[in-house]
């Protein structure tokens, strides 16, 4: 916090003129048809990305030349806020004239850069960087459909932060080389987590494969182990045996959770544990004493227990009352 941050709230003032202009008058919105494709001697590609329940969706239309794989025309439809519309419009424009391979290399950072009024000023405020991510994701989706391949083959491996395009390797290296101990430091060094913040911990804009809190905990544990190999190996929760998982859960319950509940004369017992093949674990608990039967405990305390277990062991843990 400092002088410039204290009077917050203005999202729209931070949009570049180009963003505002494209929100008002997008050049490329609309649809392309098979008829258009025939006329242009090309192949029609339609790709969808996003979900309306998550706040934005985009549909991209391409006509790809039959002879040269050059994108001859591009159009889009979008359900989203203005920056999603502006980003998608710019993205569609950038696709035109490129080959499919060239277009696949367009990143959200390229789109955001193209929307800047001046070289040094971002086109959108940090929390809106997310909108440009979908604009570049849909390109890969379209390319995958065009080539009839799985989209995973076109995606960069192990991107932790989509907004700033930071890889897992970059984050791990930053932690090790600079001896980082907090997520804020990771963001300071790598920009990961500086924008939509989804990748910091579960519960943000979207579900992520990696979260900075988990990476930090794992790398710090590895570093501690490398420094002192005599320390007990700190296992990844998902790879533990059931017995070890239960022990680990009991340890956290004892150290972090039961003392808090005891202050109110309450308690909690581990009742059951179910883990599926993908590592997601449901921890069933039973309340004791003052927590028992009090409805307030369901929302508040349950959230507290789950948050603590997620922070200490694994973000894949979900807590339920048995």
């Amino acid at each position: 916090m400092a002088k410039s941050d204290l009077i917050g709230g203005s999202l729209w003032e931070q949009y570049s003129k180009k963003v505002a202009d494209r929100m008002n008058n997008p050049r490329h919105f609309g649809e392309l048809t098979e008829e258009d494709a025939r006329r242009m001697n090309g192949k029609l590609v339609i790709a969808n990305e996003g979900a309306e329940s998550c706040g934005d969706t985009v549909r991209l239309y391409w006509i790809v030349g039959n002879d040269d794989e050059v994108i001859k025309a591009a159009a889009f439809k979008s359900f989203g806020c203005g920056t999603a519309i502006a980003s998608t419009d710019m993205m569609a424009e950038m696709c035109i004239g490129k080959t499919v391979d060239e277009a696949t290399k367009i990143t959200n950072l390229d789109v955001e850069h193209a929307l800047r009024d001046t070289e040094d000023t971002a086109a959108v405020p940090p929390q809106k960087m997310h909108c440009s991510v979908m604009a570049s994701e849909v390109i890969k989706r379209a390319a995958a459909i065009y080539r009839n391949v799985d989209i995973a083959t076109l995606e960069e491996k192990d991107i932790v932060c989509e907004c700033a395009r930071v890889t897992l390797q970059t984050v791990e290296d930053a932690i090790r080389v600079n001896d980082l101990t907090t997520v804020e430091q990771i963001t300071g060094y790598t920009k990961a987590g500086a924008f939509c913040k989804s990748c910091i911990r579960p519960g943000g804009h979207e579900k992520r494969k990696y979260y900075l809190v988990d990476i930090l905990a794992r790398v710090r544990a590895e570093m501690a182990h490398e420094k002192n190999p005599n320390l007990a190996q700190i296992d990844d929760f998902s790879t533990m045996s059931v017995v070890k998982k239960i022990r680990a859960l009991e340890q956290v319950l004892d150290a972090q959770i039961r003392p808090v509940l005891a202050r109110d004369g309450g308690g909690v017992e581990l009742e059951d544990l179910h883990c599926d093949d993908e590592g997601a674990c449901i921890v069933a608990v039973r309340y004791k004493g003052a927590c028992k039967g009090c409805a307030g405990s369901v929302a508040g305390t349950l959230g507290f227990i789950q948050q603590t277990l997620q922070d200490k062991l694994s973000t894949s843990i979900e807590v339920k009352v048995a």
Partner: peptide, 20 residues
């Protein structure tokens, strides 16, 4: 707003969490 009308939205798009 472009047409000079001020209203407001409950849409969370402007915030960091996308909770409905």
């Amino acid at each position: 707003n472009q047409a000079g009308i001020a209203a407001s939205t409950g849409s969370a798009c402007a915030s960091e969490s996308l909770e409905a």
